[in-house]
């Protein structure tokens, strides 16, 4: 069974804290439940016989006091654990931490790796790569309504609020692929607003970052060239950007390295030839109400566009 999206399989220090709190609560509550169930069973077994037995007042007082004391201790244990872990969460800090700007849109995630040098910035969408073993800071923004970023294997959730910057720190301690999701109802396609988080070993992460700084490769075959022409001259370029081409729209996911991503439509479907064809020709059939209109391409144009998009590794 895969644990792509599970708070019970923490892959980072922050998620481990949350998971510890969860298990503490789980075991204390289990103990309380068992105690109550046992007491209820004893009372049922005794039945009417109990009414005849005289219990001294001192015994009753002692039993009630013991139960109250145990309850108070258990509640204080839960409360202090909760307060302590709440305070410990999101306290990772590091001056040279990687900073990633995450901007939520209806219904996808815009991801930018900030850098003082503009040519070293990396823009992508719906897929975040982070290095293992290093604290990472997310600057969280929203362009429309309130969203919430939740990557259960790595950290708790935090809202993305329009007109405001929120910060989320996390650290992945195990390399792997995790799934995050919008956790605040944000409109029609809230359920299909997910993202993929890939925790890479540091050297592999640097390799990924360098590869994603590059502009889109030039088309090779005539069909790919035709696809590029259609993308640049047709409706695609009005919203999507492909670095190194005339496509410079900023209101939809950046497509410069679309072929290297594992999903389409904010992790709604896998990124494979058939799915890509389905998405480009009928986005409203796959994710009704999303912002991509049917582009109205002919069959031949669709094939050319697919041939070009699949070179954008």
């Amino acid at each position: 069974m895969s644990h792509l999206q599970s708070i019970l399989h923490p892959a980072g220090i922050e998620a481990a804290r949350i998971s510890q709190l969860w298990w503490t609560m789980f075991w204390i509550c289990t103990a309380v439940w068992i105690a109550v169930a046992v007491a209820a069973l004893i009372a049922i077994r005794r039945g009417h016989r109990a009414a005849a037995v005289h219990v001294p007042d001192r015994t009753i007082v002692r039993n009630v006091a013991t139960a109250a004391a145990i309850s108070i201790v258990a509640l204080i244990a839960l409360l202090s654990q909760s307060v302590l872990i709440g305070r410990a969460l999101n306290t990772l800090r590091s001056d040279d931490a990687l900073r990633i700007n995450v901007t939520a849109n209806q219904w996808w995630w815009d991801i930018q790796y900030d850098n003082p040098v503009p040519s070293l910035r990396v823009t992508t969408a719906n897929e975040i790569h982070i290095p293992v073993g290093k604290p990472v800071a997310f600057n969280l923004f929203s362009n429309d309504v309130i969203h919430s970023l939740w990557i259960p294997n790595l950290q708790g959730k935090i809202d993305l609020v329009p007109g405001r910057r929120n910060e989320l720190w996390l650290q992945a301690d195990k390399a792997g692929v995790y799934r995050g999701q919008c956790a605040e109802y944000c409109g029609l396609q809230h359920a299909k607003m997910a993202l993929v988080v890939v925790a890479d070993p540091p050297d592999q992460f640097e390799y990924w970052l360098a590869a994603n700084r590059a502009s889109a490769p030039a088309p090779v075959t005539p069909e790919q060239q035709r696809g590029k022409d259609i993308v640049e001259k047709g409706p695609c370029a009005m919203c999507h950007a492909i670095t190194g081409t005339l496509a410079g729209g900023r209101s939809a996911p950046d497509l410069t390295h679309i072929a290297s991503r594992s999903t389409l439509g904010a992790a709604a479907i896998p990124n494979m030839h058939g799915y890509l064809a389905g998405w480009v020709s009928d986005p409203q059939g796959i994710k009704p109400g999303n912002r991509m209109p049917p582009p109205g391409l002919s069959g031949e144009e669709l094939q050319a566009v697919l041939a070009y998009l699949e070179t954008l590794k």
Partner: peptide
């Protein structure tokens, strides 16, 4: 024309 769909 031709850059955005007729619906839009």
């Amino acid at each position: 024309g031709g850059h955005i769909p007729t619906s839009q």
